[in-house]
Design a protein around this nucleic acid. Structure first.
Lengths: 106, 106
DNA sequence: TGACAATGATATGTTTAGGCATCATGGCCT
DNA sequence: AGGCCATGATGCCTAAACATATCATTGTCA
């Protein structure tokens, strides 16, 4: 349950870097995303888990897009995003995730 | 404000396809993601906007990963994901998004 | 035919994202 | 010094994401 906080913090950091790179204030991004400044601040500091629609709106305000991709494709996409850097986790990147569970699988 | 509903529906469809491909029931995915079945159903049908943490948990339960990527990179990533299919929107894919606004940009 | 599994759907209650208003702090001006 | 701007951080309130329980529908299989 605490690994979720890490994910939120990573996303917040990502947003913050994108915002500063775009030279926007928290208030401007909040307005673009249709939320209040205090709320956007909570998202950026990782102290709140925004709704999916809000996440998408913030991302787009910052020139980003939210995507769902197969875990196996993540490394290839990472390589595409930052060409010659070797290891550079995108923050909210996946844990190995030991996915064992009850699967009757029919 | 209604374009958000489309995005949610697209995400829900994406989840549903991934779930069926993995031969999992709604209840199994819900358990893996740590939410109730009725809630997962709402997400899958696009009638509810899950929180960011929940979105990540569901995605991982289905072998997917949530990523935030520059909008300019989306086409390249799409091409990477489905090699020779030509048009196949990932559902929540971006609107052209006329991003004009007040930017004092100092 | 009945039993079971999966999904759709509804109702009630709790938790939290979200808005709005407000104040404090720190930096940068002229 | 004072004033402005961006950010951090409260408080109270509403809306919506959650849980839990329950019932109906559909399909499959013995």
């Amino acid at each position: 349950m605490n690994m979720e906080a890490e994910a939120l913090g990573a996303i917040g950091d990502h947003f913050r870097r994108a915002r500063l790179a775009a030279r926007l204030t928290q208030e401007q991004v909040a307005n673009l995303a249709g939320i209040s400044r205090p709320r956007y601040r909570d998202v950026e500091t990782g102290s709140a888990a925004a709704r999916t629609t809000t996440l998408i709106n913030i991302a787009r305000a910052l020139g980003l897009e939210m995507m769902l991709v197969p875990q196996a494709m993540v490394p290839a996409i990472e390589a595409l995003l930052h060409p010659e850097t070797e290891d550079d986790r995108p923050a909210y990147s996946p844990q190995p995730e030991s996915d064992d569970d009850s699967r009757p699988h029919r």
